[in-house]
Design a protein around this nucleic acid. Structure first.
Length: 558
RNA sequence: GCGCCCAUAGCUCAGCUGGAUAGAGUGGCGGUUUGCGGAACCGUAGGUCGGAGGUUCGAAUCCUCUUGGGCGCGCCA
């Protein structure tokens, strides 16, 4: 695994600073943090640093003067750097040599499909919990966004050198399960010809009737003869299993799988809940008041203490959640990530407070909020209420738009910003659709290779390919962008922002399309053809790698 | 009432955690093909970064205030 490109540049500058200090041209009481960025205008150079401006105060010199000094030492006996120039108020623009890029490309070829893989994760154990929708109904598009983001994030972290596990937490305990069972039981009676009064807070969706029908198809009406208690137990279990099955299928269809499905009920079975409460009690976080049991967190981030055991002895949802997270902590993760729907943001401080008590501060326990999705059709927003709108479920949207487009649309925006999902646009198999733009590039490259094969051009091998055949400005632009992939992975992983990958791919592919239009790959010039093919093979690997992280398919033909 | 998120081109959004003349896509307008995939490429128009102060060499980015929108504040889950 090689170092990211900017690290190399940083080292070159650092060396230059050392030489400047040794010669007494700069004081440098402290070694500054060197930040490498890209110049606004590409023609200015490949990299830039504002170092001189940052040093101006401590050196008590004009930034321009400092920049000149650094430039002098930078160019000193160095074949990686072509030029280093001062611009504006004290920017240092650095142009790397053609050989520098060719050497780097060579390394990319050697790494093959592993290029981009990083070790910033230091093999840390990380748990990503996402979706975790209650098993009381089918997944809607909001869950779909969470699924896409969570899954892509785990792939990304894996790529960045983390040891990743994924988990879906099933809230299969409590009132909502009772209500679910009751709702199905009532629909069942209804289907059997009985008159029932359906409660206002029951689950009214059509899927409940479907489940009831399943029971009739399977067992007929024999459950009518059971005592209510027994019937409810049956319907509760059956409904939950049926809905969970549906959720699993929807997710599988959406190419999202989990390492573990964690049942809330299991926390009871192994006494985790009591142990978690006792643990908190030992730490002095628990007290009794008004016949209920409270957890004391008002002094940390949350505004008020919260009830964990109600007057009636029943536990709150929060209580189970504490136990669940205690369980996560006990499993020894270095990093715990929760992806929640944005509507739960009010719940964030109390969970953070508890985790903090368990020794997991904000650096190791992170809650990522995934904002809502607004579906649009014909320029108008589709209502997302449970009763209206045919396209509110994930599976309906996937059926209409396709997995690739759906996933890409969920991932092309930062997760914490509201998303307008334009169904008409996502459905188009045409230029306006950004998914195809990237996939098309991959298919196009594959097509070029097919052409090369037809013309008996051998697959380019590193030993037999002369990379100095790559001379065009567009080729260097492409190489530069390919080389930036590794940094993109690291940056995205560290900031937990998957949408950067989508943007990167779009930019990468744009350079390719432009290059392709201007320069022919397969020509009579065999040497040059091989060099260009090798470049395209690297590009193809990066596109495939990036799309795989996003969970978007990588077509060889379209 | 208190708290969180958002506001950038007609529309949808980026903006690398304070840097150079604020960028893409889409839509508008005008172009590009006897050659590897035109699902592509090139050009052009489009902006008081919601508003007002402040911090400094420098602010879309940080602080305060303000306006408009989304959401949350249960012994619900």
């Amino acid at each position: 695994m090689t170092r990211p490109m900017k690290e190399t540049v940083k080292q070159l500058i650092s060396d230059a600073l050392d030489r400047a200090r040794a010669k007494g041209d700069l004081n440098l009481a402290e070694t500054p943090d060197i930040i490498i960025e890209e110049p606004k205008d590409e023609t200015l150079g490949d990299f830039a640093t504002t170092l001189a401006m940052q040093l101006a105060r401590s050196e008590k010199k004009n930034p321009k003067v400092i920049a000149e000094v650094i430039c002098g030492f930078l160019k000193d006996g160095n074949d990686a750097i072509d030029s280093a120039q001062v611009a504006g108020p004290g920017f240092i623009n650095i142009k790397m040599s053609a050989d520098f890029f060719r050497k780097r490309l060579r390394e990319v070829v050697e790494q093959g499909r592993d290029f981009g893989r990083s070790d910033v994760g230091q093999n840390k154990k990380v748990l990503v919990e996402f979706v975790s929708a209650n098993p009381t109904g089918p997944l809607h598009v909001g869950h779909g966004r969470g699924a896409a983001v969570g899954h892509a994030l785990s792939c990304l972290l894996n790529m960045a050198g983390y040891d990743v596990s994924t988990e879906y937490y099933i809230n299969d305990v409590g009132n909502q399960m009772n209500m679910l069972g009751r709702s199905t039981w009532l629909r069942y009676k209804e289907l059997a010809g009985h008159k029932v009064t359906f409660p206002d807070d029951g689950y009214k969706g059509d899927y409940i009737r479907d489940i009831a029908q399943q029971v009739i198809d399977k067992d007929g009406t024999r459950h009518l003869d059971k005592p209510d208690e027994d019937a409810l137990t049956f319907f509760r279990q059956f409904s939950k299993d049926s809905i969970l099955e549906g959720i699993r299928n929807d997710l599988k269809e959406f190419r999202v799988e989990f390492d573990r499905w964690f049942s809330e009920a299991s926390l009871d079975e192994d006494d985790s809940v009591n142990r978690a409460i006792n643990w908190l009690r030992d730490k002095g976080f628990v007290y009794e008041k008004d016949g209920a049991t409270w957890v004391k967190i008002s002094e940390s981030q949350d505004a008020a203490d919260r009830v964990i055991i109600k007057q009636g002895g029943e536990r709150t949802y929060f209580c189970s959640d504490i136990a669940y997270h205690k369980n996560k902590v006990d499993r020894g993760y270095d990093l715990i990530l929760d992806l929640w729907g944005a509507d739960h943001h009010g719940y964030v401080p109390r969970m953070q407070s508890v985790l903090k008590a368990m020794g997991y501060g904000e650096e190791v326990f992170k809650i990522l909020l995934v904002q809502f999705v607004a579906l649009k059709r014909g320029g108008k927003k589709v209502s997302m209420s449970t009763r209206s709108g045919e396209f509110e479920t994930l599976s309906d949207v996937v059926a209409e738009v396709g997995v690739d487009a759906t996933r890409f649309f969920f991932l092309m925006r930062s997760a914490d910003s509201h998303l307008d999902f334009d169904l008409d646009l996502a459905k188009k198999e045409s230029p306006e659709n950004p998914v195809y733009y990237i996939q098309y590039a991959h298919a196009r490259i594959c097509s070029v290779f097919r052409t090369a094969e037809k013309q008996k051009v051998p697959f380019p091998e590193l030993d037999t390919t002369d990379l100095s055949q790559l001379k065009e400005a567009e080729e260097f632009a492409l190489i530069k962008k390919i080389l930036a992939y590794r940094e993109c992975i690291e940056k995205s992983a560290l900031t937990l922002e998957v949408h950067r990958i989508a943007f990167y791919l779009h930019e990468l592919v744009a350079i390719f399309h432009s290059y392709y239009k201007q320069h022919r790959i397969v020509t009579e010039d065999r040497e040059r053809t091989l060099a260009r093919l090798l470049l395209l093979d690297c590009l193809r690997n990066v596109i495939a790698s990036g799309l795989s992280i996003l969970g978007v398919s990588v077509p060889e033909k379209m």
